[in-house]
């Protein structure tokens, strides 16, 4: 840590961390949203889906593994920048009586944690996407993860607007 701080300032380190958190969030959001939309949409009944369609790529086991990795990386980055939020953002937020933002952020901790809890099951259900055995629960676990990522990004964005990168 000291070697990093000898090159860049503490403020820059936090800004880079927060920006990385945002970049991974966008990547995760794109992947999980598309996957959730595809599992919710009725499967195409006619043969000859357009070549290069995203459907087989997103509804495959490697995509789910990638989403699990992105979710874990994102949670770790979130846990890292959470330190700065607790000391640098939340205290003035409380001082200015932004209670809804504080409450929504507290709830974000819980939503993301529940998403973490479901990751092993999510990964397991997506090992064999063609299997009908767990198709319903696979769908809803995917939707739950998509919801958790959307909620996390929305609330994180509000907190960032209060005191973060570019605010």
């Amino acid at each position: 840590m000291d070697s990093i701080l000898s090159i860049i300032s503490v403020q820059t380190l936090w800004k880079i961390s927060l920006f990385l958190h945002f970049v991974v969030a966008v990547a995760l959001l794109a992947a999980i949203t598309l996957q959730a939309a595809l599992v919710l949409a009725p499967s195409p009944q006619v043969a000859g889906a357009p070549a290069g369609s995203l459907r087989p790529l997103l509804l495959a086991a490697p995509s789910a593994t990638l989403i699990v990795i992105l979710y874990l990386v994102q949670a770790l980055l979130g846990a890292w920048v959470y330190v700065k939020y607790r000391t640098y953002v939340r205290i003035p937020m409380e001082g200015l009586r932004h209670w809804w933002t504080v409450g929504a952020f507290e709830f974000k901790e819980h939503v993301i944690t529940m998403g973490l809890a479901l990751l092993p099951a999510y990964w397991y259900f997506w090992r064999d996407p063609a299997s009908q055995q767990h198709s319903t629960i696979r769908k809803w676990v995917t939707v739950f993860l998509a919801f958790s990522v959307w909620y996390g990004l929305a609330v994180g964005h509000v907190a960032n607007d209060f005191r973060g990168v570019g605010s």
Binding site: H110, M114, A117, W140, F144
Partner: peptide
């Protein structure tokens, strides 16, 4: 798997 996380939330 769905009931417990949602109930917890």
């Amino acid at each position: 798997l769905m009931i417990m996380p949602i109930g917890g939330l």
